[in-house]
Design a protein around this nucleic acid. Structure first.
Lengths: 192, 192
DNA sequence: CCTCGCGTGGCACTCAGTGTCAACGCTGCC
DNA sequence: GGCAGCGTTGACACTGAGTGCCACGCGAGG
């Protein structure tokens, strides 16, 4: 990584860190961009050169998750049943969180409990779902499926995952997300 | 309804109608509140006395749907299996749309295709889900269910419904929403 | 006739987000 | 060393969303 790139990364981290500190004891709505910028020692204008909106400071950590999700799905063996393939693809989500467990936990907590952020998250999810449904429709057994099958399976999988995520942040800090996800998937896709 | 109430309703309708006209050939983002207010012949300040945000002009039609949904669920017979009860409760959604078919179709189309509006819709849905899950958990067969079962069932039901809704607006104007919903539910809750 | 209540419009203000421009610093080249 | 080019930055101005405040007008009732 070049010098300029590392400098950019430094400012970026400074900004997110400052934002997290402020959000911790004020809310999200109560925190202004001026405050975050000032806390990170840059101007308001510079803030917008790193993040396109106030929500982005928090939401950014799931920015390339869409690509990772698509890649994960298409790398599943074609023989795998659709529901199972999506379920396994969604593990990259948990894996990504596991790279920074404590930070991910904090971020998810804030995200779930802040309507504006949750809305942005769900907004992104709509795109992910569309992409995954497109991929998945190519691997559906043509006999038993309609054009609705793939989208519904994807939507159901995300519904299960989100339910697990929401319950996770309401539990003690060391709760096991994977176990919750598995439990939710077991309800959503009952083993027949 | 008293005189003042009818006057308020008149302004309200004027405002939504004006907004819809403007949104039709400009986008949502491109339409300003000043324009809507001016088109309805009131001041900007008055606009905010009727709608709490720009999105509200469009989203408002599903304002008391949450209450209706909860009522519908609790009026389902206790003997009904949970998934079926939620599915049947969600029919009030379609029924509400059916009260003004052509208008509902337009509104839904705009809503689904405008990220900001879709986000608001999903935001509301989060609340509805929480309420329904709470209701539903009281009618779960205790033997086979955990505390996750009710939330997952509700989330899956909404996932199916939303998938139907999204597909509905991509189809010809006279497409049957009920048929789509039933098809999506059949995938989400396969008859065992 | 007066006044109480309410809907309204106007005004000023904060904050999010964007465009523009001039200054600064680094890098490479003469 | 000086200079040109390029990217980062900060300052300023501007639009649009959303809110608080106050003063005006109007109908209802004493």
């Amino acid at each position: 990584m070049s010098l300029v790139e590392r400098k950019r990364q430094l400012v970026r981290d400074e900004l997110t860190e400052a934002a997290l500190k402020l959000l911790a004891f004020q809310g999200f709505e109560e925190t202004t961009i001026d405050q975050m910028a000032a806390a990170a020692g840059v101007s308001r204008r510079t803030f917008f050169r790193y993040f396109s909106s106030k929500e982005d400071v928090i939401i950014e950590f799931l920015s390339d998750l869409g690509r990772k999700l698509s890649a994960a799905l298409s790398s599943r063996p074609p023989s795998e049943p659709p529901a199972e393939a999506v379920q396994n693809a969604l593990r990259v989500f948990t894996d990504t969180l596991w790279e920074h467990p404590e930070k991910s936990r904090r971020l998810t907590e804030i995200m779930v409990n802040t309507p504006a952020l949750l809305a942005r998250y769900l907004e992104r999810q709509v795109e992910w779902k569309a992409a995954l449904a497109k991929d998945l429709s190519t691997r559906m057994p043509p006999a038993t499926s309609t054009e609705l099958t793939a989208p519904v399976v994807v939507a159901v999988a995300f519904a299960a995952y989100d339910t697990a995520l929401i319950h996770w942040v309401q539990q003690p800090r060391d709760a096991d997300l994977n176990a919750l996800v598995d439990a939710c998937f077991a309800v959503a896709f009952p083993p027949s």
